[in-house]
Computed example of a mutant assay.
Amino acid sequence: MNIGDRIPEVLGIDQDGREIKASDYRGRKLVIYSYPKANTSGCTAEACSLQAHKEELAAAGYEIIGVSKDKQALQKKFADAHGLQFPLIADTETTLLQELGCWGEKVTCGRKTIGILRTTYLVDENGIIEKIFTPKEIKTKIHAEQILNAIKDKSQNDNSQHNIQSHRWNTPCGRTAVQRIWRGVCHYRTLHKERESETPRYPHRRPDGNLHARICRPCACHGCGETEGHRG
C-alpha cells in the first residue's frame, strides 16, 4: 500500500483472540507496524520502545497495532513477557501483511528470502495511510521517538500552511481577498448597468420605410437601415 490508500477493514486476530477491525478505531489515528519475529532482539527493542511512549502517542491521538506471522500463542507470550498493552495480530496466513505490502523479498545474512519487511504505517482518523516508515528508515531502539518526531513535523507543517493561507487571504486593511474579489464583481456589474442605461435606444427603419417592430441598439455602420441582430 502507498500513502493515500485506505487500510483493510478486517485486520486480523490479536493475541487475546479478538478480531481487530479498522472501524473499531474510527475517529482515532493508528500506528500499524509489522515486525519479522516475536521475542527476537530487534522486534523486542521496537515493541518496548512503542510501549514506553504509548501515552505520548495516545496524547497525539494514536493507537498502536503490531502484526507479524507468529501464532496467537507466541504473540500472547511476547506481549506478557514485555508488558505490551496493545494488540499484536497473529497473521499466520500473511493476509494483512500482503495487503499492506510488507511481505516480500529481502536479504537476510547475505541470502535472498521471502518474509516480513519491517514497516510502520501512520494512519489517519479515516483509515487513510499518511506516512510510511520503510525498513531502512526504522531504528528499532528509538522507533517511537522517530514516530513522535514525524507527528510533530507534520503538525508544524500543517500549522505553517494554515498561517500562510491566512496571510495570503487577508489584506493589510483586514479585508479578505475573497471580499475584495466580490466587491470588484459588484462594482463591475453596477458599472455595466450604468453604461447600458446610458446607451441611446431608438427605432430604425427598414429599407421599405417601415419601422422595426422592436426597438434595438444601432449597428456599427449607423444609418445603413439595418439593426444589430435583426438583419433582413
Rank of each mutant, 00 (worst) to 15 (best):
Pro172Ala: 07
Ser197Asp: 14
Leu50Gln: 04
Glu63Cys: 03
Ala90Phe: 02
Asp124Asn: 10
Gly229Asp: 12
Thr119Ser: 08
Gln85Val: 08
Leu97Val: 01
Leu97Cys: 03
Ser166Val: 04
Glu130Pro: 00
Ser68Pro: 11
Gly61Ser: 04
Gln179Cys: 06
Gly174Leu: 11
Tyr188Gly: 07
Val185Pro: 00
Ala58Ser: 11
Thr120Arg: 01
Arg118Tyr: 13
Arg205Pro: 01
Ile114Trp: 01
Lys29Asn: 10
Thr199Gln: 12
Ala220Val: 14
Thr92Pro: 01
Asp158Gln: 11
Cys48Thr: 09
Ala81Gly: 09
Arg214Asn: 15
Asp70Gln: 02
Gly127Leu: 12
Thr120Gln: 01
Thr171Arg: 14
Gly12Asp: 11
Gly223Thr: 03
Pro8Asn: 07
Arg195Ala: 13
Ile138Met: 02
Asp153Cys: 01
Gly174Pro: 04
Gly4Ser: 12
Arg18His: 11
Gly17Ile: 01
Gly223Ser: 02
Gly101Pro: 05
Ser166Met: 08
Pro172Ile: 13
Gly66Ala: 06
Trp103Leu: 00
Ala59Trp: 03
Asp24Ile: 02
Ile116Glu: 00
Lys152Cys: 04
Glu137Lys: 14
Arg189Glu: 15
His212Arg: 13
Gln179Asp: 11
Trp103Gln: 00
Lys141Tyr: 05
Gln156Arg: 15
Thr176Asn: 08
Arg201Phe: 10
Ile132Gln: 02
Pro8Ser: 07
Gln85Leu: 15
